[in-house]
């Protein structure tokens, strides 16, 4: 069974900011390859004469006019955050610019 290289798996993990152990790297090497094969199958379909579809829905876009302020309260905004110091939500670690 084909699989991705370790470097390819680590690259994808890095994009998702995930730390993987050796077993997980091995596991995802196969799983990600299967996903990529499925995508390749879709990509192989000849669609040059078709108009691009961006959504399964054919609904027209509905634009909103400016007037409302549908904000939620600060308390509700912070409610589900695991880390907060009112009025902020925070995350740990130093982040690059």
């Amino acid at each position: 069974m084909e699989k991705l290289t370790k470097e390819e798996v680590l690259h994808v993990a890095d994009l998702a900011r995930l730390k993987l152990d050796e077993n997980e790297i091995e596991d995802y090497a196969y799983k990600l390859k299967a996903i990529m094969d499925s995508i390749s199958l879709i990509n192989s379909i000849e669609v040059t004469d078709n108009e691009m579809t961006i959504s399964p829905s054919t609904a027209k876009i509905s634009l909103f006019k400016e007037q409302e302020n549908k904000t939620i309260s600060k308390a509700d905004a912070l409610k589900n955050a695991p880390n907060k110091i009112d009025p902020y939500i925070y995350v740990g670690g130093s982040i690059d610019e």
Partner: peptide
């Protein structure tokens, strides 16, 4: 603009912290 681009929340970056947000912005 008066509102944000994808939610009907006021566009004012000088407002008190986290008071102009909704579920879409979050």
């Amino acid at each position: 603009t008066r509102n944000k681009v994808f939610s009907e929340v006021l566009n004012d970056t000088t407002a008190p912290v986290n008071t102009l947000v909704n579920e879409i912005d979050l």
